[in-house]
Amino acid sequence: MRVMVDLARCQSYGQCVFAAPEIFEISGREVLEYDSAPSDEWRLHLERARAACPVQAITIGPAAGPGKDDGQPSTVRPAADSMGVLR
């Protein structure tokens, strides 16, 4: 599982830090830092963070790149279905 924050959009509201303190952190006064490859056990927290971000700057998904299914029909659920990982 990979996380990416669009730091051009991020306004350091810190809502993600409340939702998933294991992954996100505001360091200094306004600098957001995060673990971009968190363990799967934090999935629900991560979902909470993504939902809570006021500017919707958080993307979650499997690591991009050729997977074992490269060239095969779709197996990965589109992230646009936000509940995919919760089901």
Binding site: R2, A37, A64, G65, P66, S74, A79
Partner: peptide
């Protein structure tokens, strides 16, 4: 040293069903 280079891989939002030539 607070993040490994391996962790920098970007997430993909959806299945790209792409052909990679890396």
């Amino acid at each position: 040293g607070r993040m490994s280079a391996d962790s920098t891989g970007l997430p993909q939002r959806q299945d790209l069903d792409a052909h990679w030539r890396l």
